[in-house]
């Protein structure tokens, strides 16, 4: 027993050094392992935002579950929105385990969401007024999410990596689902094509914003450097945005869609896309909880959470009664 105390007797600085050696060797950190507060906070910020974005992301798509045009589309979109909730479940579990030593649980995450302390992705603050929006979300918003999630698969935090692995496996179904929705509209009547184009116009800026600003010059702060140091992520926001444009712009053009940016072009010399910057002040406004649909969706989530409080109370009662 005494022999096993070797790790415990290290001072904080030695523990930190030991921790960074593990990170740099490519080892995976687990929930119960020692970690610097800075790392824990970076993880909580990243993963609780990711998780709650999945949960809030279910809401704009959920609007289209009953309205999905055919039996098959109804089934598929139900399965897809369910997966988003499932991804939220996985990610919140990872965040909750990190918050537990701080005396917090899922209820705190929900309260932080309602008070706008906990932020969620810009795209889920936006309206989705037509079936065309459902298609664009499924194809392009999911496409963007797949790129950023795949990039983090090798993250230094073991539980996050395992959650992402499950998520990425399901995203391959989502990608096909999104393509299928978009192709059906692109192959369809003029009215259907127009519906799709209008949705693309509505979503373009939000899609560019999805990856975040190039550097902190645009919004005043950024956690990218820290996340790279801790091997939580491997690519910058701009690298991901370039990948997105490379993957989707040619496909959009192929099916006859206009890119809502007349200046966009691929610069062969620099080997990169030149595009019109979205309005980063607008981005800041949206993610700090002042987007067009923010309050409505938060209200929907909060009111349902509070209305069902009696259920959690009732079953919490059973659990404690059973334990004695």
């Amino acid at each position: 027993m005494i022999e096993q105390l070797t790790f415990d007797v290290l001072n904080d600085e030695q523990k930190y050094q030991h921790f960074m050696e593990r990170i740099n060797r490519g080892e995976k950190i687990e929930a119960d392992d020692w970690m610097p507060d800075d790392y824990r906070q970076a993880l909580i910020r990243l993963i609780s935002m990711h998780g709650i974005s999945e949960i809030m992301g279910a809401l704009p798509e959920k609007e289209w579950v009953p309205k999905a045009p055919t039996l098959n589309r109804k089934l598929a979109i139900m399965a897809k929105v369910q997966d988003e909730m499932g991804h939220g479940q996985l990610l919140l579990r990872v965040a909750e385990d990190l918050m537990k030593p701080l005396g917090k649980n899922r209820d705190n995450i929900m309260q932080d969401l309602f008070s706008k302390r906990l932020k969620f992705h810009n795209v889920f603050h936006m309206p989705s007024p037509t079936w065309g929006d459902a298609a664009v979300i499924a194809w392009l918003v999911d496409g963007a999410a797949i790129l950023s999630q795949t990039m983090m698969l090798d993250t230094s935090y073991g539980p996050y990596g395992r959650a992402l692995k499950r998520i990425c496996q399901e995203e391959s179904f989502h990608a096909k689902h999104g393509e299928s929705l978009v192709l059906s509209l692109a192959e369809g009547t003029d009215k259907q094509k127009q519906m799709l184009q209008e949705a693309v116009n509505r979503w373009w800026d939000a899609l560019l914003m999805f990856f975040g600003p190039k550097s902190k010059n645009e919004t005043g702060h950024s956690n990218v450097d820290k996340n790279i140091k801790y091997k939580l992520r491997t690519k910058t926001n701009e690298q991901l945005r370039q990948e997105f444009l490379t993957k989707y712009v040619p496909k959009m053009k192929l099916i006859g869609l206009d890119i809502p940016d007349k200046t966009i072009r691929f610069d062969e010399d620099k080997q990169e896309w030149i595009y019109k910057e979205p309005d980063w002040n607008e981005f800041k406004k949206i993610v700090s909880g002042n987007g067009p649909k923010t309050n409505e969706r938060l209200h929907l989530r909060q009111s349902s959470y509070e209305q069902n409080e009696w259920v959690r109370e009732a079953l919490g009662h059973i659990s404690s009664a059973a334990v004695g």
């Binding site: 949960i55 369910q82 349902s304």
Partner: peptide
């Protein structure tokens, strides 16, 4: 399926949705 996203807790939301999909 109208409950999607609004069930008493997230795990139930996911489980309930499977039942609705099966029924549909």
């Amino acid at each position: 399926s109208e409950w999607l996203g609004l069930a008493p807790h997230i795990e139930e939301d996911v489980a309930f949705s499977s039942i609705n999909q099966d029924t549909m």
